[in-house]
Amino acid sequence: LQAFIKTLTGKTFTVEMEPSDTIENLKAKIQDKEGIPPDQQRLIFAGKQLEDGRTLSDYNIQKESTLHLVL
Rank of each mutant, 00 (worst) to 15 (best):
D21P: 02
D52C: 04
D58K: 02
L67N: 02
V15W: 02
T14C: 08
E64A: 10
K11P: 04
V70H: 12
Q31W: 15
K33P: 00
E64W: 14
E18A: 13
A46R: 13
E34K: 08
K11M: 08
P38Y: 13
D39E: 11
Q31S: 12
I23D: 01
L1E: 04
F4I: 14
F45T: 02
P37Y: 05
L69E: 00
E24Y: 14
A3P: 06
E24G: 14
K11W: 10
D52T: 06
E16F: 13
S65I: 14
T14H: 07
L67V: 12
H68K: 05
Q2G: 05
S65C: 08
G53A: 10
K6E: 10
D39P: 05
L71V: 12
R42T: 15
F4N: 10
L26G: 00
H68G: 03
T22S: 07
I30L: 04
P38T: 14
S57C: 04
Q41S: 03
K27G: 01
E51W: 04
Q41D: 01
Q40V: 11
T14Q: 07
H68N: 07
I36V: 07
K27M: 03
Q49Y: 13
D39K: 10
R42P: 01
K33N: 05
K63A: 15
E51Q: 10
A28H: 12
Q40Y: 10
K27F: 02
T22I: 04
T66S: 06
L50T: 03
G35T: 02
V15R: 00
P38C: 08
E24C: 06
E18D: 12
V70M: 12
I30W: 01
Q49A: 11
D32F: 11
E24N: 07
E24R: 14
A28M: 14
F13W: 05
T14P: 06
G10L: 03
I36T: 08
E16P: 08
Q31I: 02
G47T: 03
G10D: 04
H68D: 07
K29E: 03
D52I: 05
I61L: 08
V70Q: 09
T12L: 11
G35P: 02
Q41G: 02
I61K: 05
P37A: 08
D32E: 15
S65V: 15
F13I: 09
F4K: 12
A28P: 00
F13S: 00
K29N: 03
E34R: 06
R54D: 06
L50N: 01
G10C: 05
T12S: 10
D32G: 08
G53L: 07
N25S: 11
M17G: 03
G53S: 11
T12C: 10
E18Q: 13
T55L: 11
V15N: 00
A46I: 06
K33D: 03
T14M: 13
G53R: 08
T14D: 04
Q2Y: 13
A46E: 15
Q62E: 12
Q2A: 08
T12Y: 09
I61E: 04
S20M: 09
G53N: 12
Y59R: 01
E34C: 12
I36K: 02
E51K: 07
K6W: 09
T66K: 07
K33T: 08
I36G: 02
E64Q: 10
L50F: 02
D39L: 08
L1N: 06
D39A: 13
V15Y: 03
T7I: 09
L26Y: 00
D58L: 03
G53E: 10
A3I: 15
T7F: 11
D52K: 03
R42S: 11
D21Q: 07
P38A: 15
N25Y: 12
I36C: 03
K63W: 10
F4Y: 12
G47N: 06
T7H: 07
T55G: 03
L8H: 14
N25K: 14
D21T: 05
T12V: 13
P38M: 15
A46M: 14
N25A: 13
K48P: 02
K6L: 12
E51R: 05
K33I: 15
T7P: 06
K29R: 10
Q49P: 11
V70L: 13
S57M: 12
K63I: 08
T22F: 05
E16C: 10
I44P: 01
L50R: 00
E18P: 03
Y59K: 01
L69H: 00
I23C: 01
K48T: 13
F13T: 02
Q31L: 10
L8Y: 13
L67T: 02
K6P: 02
D21I: 05
M17F: 15
Q62L: 12
M17C: 12
R42I: 15
G53W: 14
N60I: 08
S65F: 15
K29D: 01
I30P: 01
F4Q: 10
A3M: 15
Q41K: 00
A46T: 05
N25R: 14
Y59S: 02
R54I: 05
L43W: 03
D58C: 03
Y59P: 01
Q41N: 01
K11N: 08
D32I: 13
L67G: 01
P19W: 13
K63S: 15
K48A: 10
I36A: 04
D32P: 01
E51V: 06
I30C: 01
T55A: 07
V15C: 03
Q49R: 09
E64S: 12
P19S: 11
L71T: 10
K11T: 07
L43Y: 03
I44H: 11
K33V: 13
L8I: 12
T66H: 15
Q31R: 13
L1D: 04
D58S: 14
A28S: 11
K11F: 10
P38D: 04
L50M: 10
Q49F: 13
I44F: 15
L69D: 00
I61D: 04
D21M: 10
L43Q: 00
T66I: 15
Q62F: 11
Q2C: 10
A28Q: 13
P37D: 07
E16Q: 12
T22K: 07
I44R: 04
Q40A: 07
F4L: 12
R42E: 09
N60D: 09
Y59F: 04
I36E: 01
E16W: 14
S20I: 06
N25Q: 14
S20D: 12
A3K: 02
L71K: 05
A3Q: 05
E18Y: 14
D52H: 05
N25C: 09
G47C: 05
S57Y: 08
V15H: 01
K27C: 02
K48D: 06
L69M: 07
L26N: 01
L71G: 06
Q62S: 13
I23S: 01
S65Y: 09
P19L: 13
V15D: 00
L56N: 00
Q49W: 13
K63Q: 13
V70P: 00
F13P: 00
L26D: 00
K33M: 14
D39V: 07
E64P: 04
D52F: 03
E34P: 00
L26A: 01
L43F: 05
Q31K: 08
S57E: 11
T66C: 05
D39M: 08
T9N: 13
S57N: 09
K63T: 15
I36M: 05
D39Y: 12
K48G: 07
M17H: 03
L26I: 08
K27E: 00
I5S: 01
E18V: 11
T22M: 06
A46C: 09
F45Q: 03
I23T: 04
T22H: 03
Q31G: 07
D21G: 07
K6N: 07
N60C: 05
T9Q: 11
V70W: 11
P38K: 15
I5C: 05
M17K: 00
T14W: 09
F45I: 05
G10E: 03
S65R: 06
L67Q: 01
